[in-house]
Design a protein around this nucleic acid. Structure first.
Ligand SMILES: [Mn+2]
Ligand SMILES: [Mn+2]
Ligand SMILES: [Zn+2]
Ligand SMILES: [Zn+2]
Lengths: 147, 147
DNA sequence: CATGCAAATGCAAGTGAGTTGCAACTGGCG
DNA sequence: CGCCAGTTGCAACTCACTTGCATTTGCATG
């Protein structure tokens, strides 16, 4: 019940987002976007394509790229050369929060409520337009179980 | 003159580092390490192998991996799925400074003198053991020329 | 409701950074 | 010296992601 509720909510939200961004409402886009909206964590291309029966891999890559261009989603580097994707709650192009990955269970989390630091005075005259922060360590549940 | 001075310094430093870490002093390791020591910026595997005539690509990968294991060098994600490598001035396993890349000239820099932020109170009970910070923007010289 | 067409899809083939297997070699120790 | 664990070098492999191209389709327009 809970699951299907969330899923149908996501369908509606997905439609609205696509409309708002002037993207055609197609099957692959609805499927990928509603999946990302209902996911509790960032997903890899492999996880996304695997979760959508009959999805074409290349189309999923292209759908994800269009979401990035329109700042509907953001892309996370995992360190193992595989990207992960999540819907961006703030609507910015840049990363707007740090990401945390657990060295034990491997889960990646968007720390949506954590502010990014200011880099006002870097020695010479550099301008920071954008930043990516990856924190690694133990998540709350893995920590309880003992490292 | 300046260049050969720096280069021979690097040779000596490379030998010493290998000895200190108990790594056999081999041709590929000396070549790669002295190159990294004399480089002013992080280098990709491609740049490293290309700068060493006759170098075997696989050996260079393996040499770099051994440097990472021994915390002689650190590895940087560039966002385009290519790694870059730099000698680690502090000797830590973790990243110990942020990295900056210029959106115009593409150069990556180690901000060795910039401190990493503390993440003492992340809401739940996570422990941060390690962090990677990538800043993107305009470097000092590209900024002068006008963005 | 047609009709048209730019945009999107789906399939096959390609790219390239990084990995693996394995036989030959060698740095450094006794 | 002579050994041998560790290292090298070559060929073959993997696999995430990209490109090309012919076919289909969302949706704006009349
Ligand atoms: Mn995120
Ligand atoms: Mn660095
Ligand atoms: Zn965990
Ligand atoms: Zn620059």
């Amino acid at each position: 019940m809970k699951r299907s509720r969330r899923h149908s909510d996501s369908l509606g939200r997905a439609s609205a987002l696509l409309r708002d961004h002037g993207l055609k409402k197609t099957r692959p886009r609805i499927d990928v976007l509603s999946l990302l909206l209902s996911a509790r964590k960032p997903l890899s291309h492999h996880e996304i394509a695997g979760a959508i029966p009959g999805a074409d891999k290349v189309t999923v890559y292209r759908v994800l790229s269009s979401f990035l261009e329109h700042s509907i989603a953001h892309r996370i580097e995992t360190g193992d050369r595989v990207w992960q994707f999540a819907v961006c709650p703030c609507g910015h192009t840049e990363h707007c929060h740090p990401h945390f990955s657990c060295r034990k269970c491997g889960k990646m989390e968007c720390l949506s409520d954590v502010k990014l630091p200011r880099w006002s005075r870097l020695k010479p005259g550099r301008v920071v337009e954008n930043q990516e922060i990856y924190l690694h360590g133990l998540c709350a549940s893995c920590r309880k179980e003992g490292a």
